[in-house]
């Protein structure tokens, strides 16, 4: 019985909460039990933001993820803060454009993705978060790639549906990235 706890953290404005929503919506499409919990308050822009996502076959207890199976970090303060929280045997996904150091833990698997640079090179500079999600899907299978478009279209607000293709492109780029 899978009970996968995901923690995504970075600067406000990097799309950390949105990345969590994509996983949550996809999980719901797959008829899993879901919770999505954002940090909230003044850190919305510029400060640190994080969100807890639980994707499970059994009912979700506490929605607060303090020991993630999967950690996604998009800035150094978040990596410093949460590296030690990851469950032994879990994995961490690190945006290596913005985080220069390597992990100290040896009991977790760590993937380094230059997501911010890749996003810039692809001409979609705001979608590093989706590149990270693509890689997470590839490595963990927490949700399937199949049917992602539907989940994504539910996550993207009505007025931003024109960004659907760009989001998909970013996810695919992350999915194909070999580290």
């Amino acid at each position: 019985m899978a009970y996968i706890q995901v923690l995504i953290a970075g600067f406000g404005g990097q799309g950390v909460l949105f990345a969590g929503k994509v996983l949550a919506h996809k999980g719901l499409e797959e008829e899993k039990q879901i919770s999505w919990l954002p940090s909230y308050g003044p850190e919305m822009r510029g400060g640190t933001a994080n969100c807890s996502v639980i994707i499970s076959d059994t009912p979700v207890g506490s929605p607060i993820v303090s020991e993630p199976d999967i950690l996604i970090v998009m800035n150094l303060p978040s990596f410093d803060k949460y590296e030690n929280a990851v469950k032994a045997g879990g994995c961490a996904f690190v945006d290596s454009t913005l985080i220069e150091r390597k992990a100290e833990r040896t009991d977790i698997s760590v993937h380094y993705i230059p997501a911010t640079k890749m996003a810039r090179d692809l001409g979609i500079p705001t979608l590093a978060n989706m590149i990270m999600i693509g890689k997470v899907i590839r490595e963990t299978g927490v949700v399937a790639m199949d049917g992602l478009r539907d989940a994504l279209s539910k996550t993207v607000s009505a007025k931003h549906q024109d960004l659907l293709e760009a989001n998909l492109k970013a996810i695919e780029a992350g999915y194909e990235y070999k580290d």
Partner: peptide, 10 residues
């Protein structure tokens, strides 16, 4: 409370 207010669930 703030948690239940802010969290998303199905």
């Amino acid at each position: 409370d703030g948690t239940i207010g802010q969290m998303m669930e199905p």
